[in-house]
Amino acid sequence: MSAFPSLRTCGYAMLLFALVVAPWAGLYPVLGTKLLCYALFACAFHLLLGYTGLASLGHAAFLGVGGYVAGYGVKMWQLSPELALLAGLGSGALLGVVMGFISIRRSGIYFTMITLALAQMVYFLCVQLPQTGGEDGLQGIDRGRLFGLLDLHDDLTMYYTVLVISVAAFLFIARVVYSPFGQALQAIKDNEPRAVSLGYHPNHYKLIVFTLSAALTGLAGALKAISLGFVTLSDVHWMTSGHALLMTLVGGLGTLSGPVVGALALVTLENKMGALGAGLASLTGFAWFSTLGESVMMIMGIVFVLCVLTFRRGIMGELLSLSRHRPRKTA
């Protein structure tokens, strides 16, 4: 028991160290920035699924709207990056209150379907509204200078800025999970009628956590818009919500670090699939491998099936259960 927290601290320290030195070890900073944005997205999504048991398929709406608001603010009102990020966070929270208010009235699959339906309404609004640029999306969003000091046009500065914000958001999520509020969430997830009989009103807790999750997702969207310089309809598309679910499940449901690891693994895989395919093709002589880059969706599907069939607890879930069981066997 006493060895476990230190092991966990070591794990986080190693992950953080790896992220800090990654650009110097050959990681392209822009890809790194994208990885972090998706990691934050997955963590925010997981706050709802992993700790409250609410599976939302509407999180793309928060990611997309956060991105659009931040991007629009920068392009049209020349907002500074910090204000644009706040606008993304705020718009995510606002949309979260509205969508949460409607959807938490139902549970299970009905909750999921309502979030999906509401997110689709947001998607069609984004297609129609002139402010989003429709099919073209918002392009050429300027990164600007953070607090007027840090020039974010430098990819490395951008990367470390996103890293700092992501780590802060991660620590915030960890705090929420291990707070009195988090305890109540766990109770509601485990046994809602019992929580009611102890005087709790589950819907208040669900609405707050839904809003927190949506706000953090909006922040991830804004970070992504500013660092990559564009927002497109694919950010609000429901497949992006599915992506968050996939990253969480592959990383490990119910583990704090799972979504981070899942996001890092899947986004890397997605981005490096072409190179991987080409490598395999030249290695094995099968020309078919070089087409892998075009069939990313198929590979994602295979990864998901493998995950469900062979390591259902996800990467971190399996690792944690290994580290928990090993000392017991030797003792």
Binding site: R175, V176, S179, P180, F181, G182, Q183, A184, Q186, A187, K189, D190, N191, P193, R194, A195, S197, L198, G199, Y200, H204, Y205, I208, V209, L212
Partner: peptide, 26 residues
């Protein structure tokens, strides 16, 4: 009806914590 994911102590604390008024303090 117990909260299976929480420890035995946490189960009881959950019934007690509401009176502290910190249950929404995330």
């Amino acid at each position: 009806a117990v909260f299976g994911g929480l420890s035995v102590l946490d189960n009881v604390r959950l019934a007690l914590q509401r009176k502290l008024g910190v249950s929404f303090h995330f």
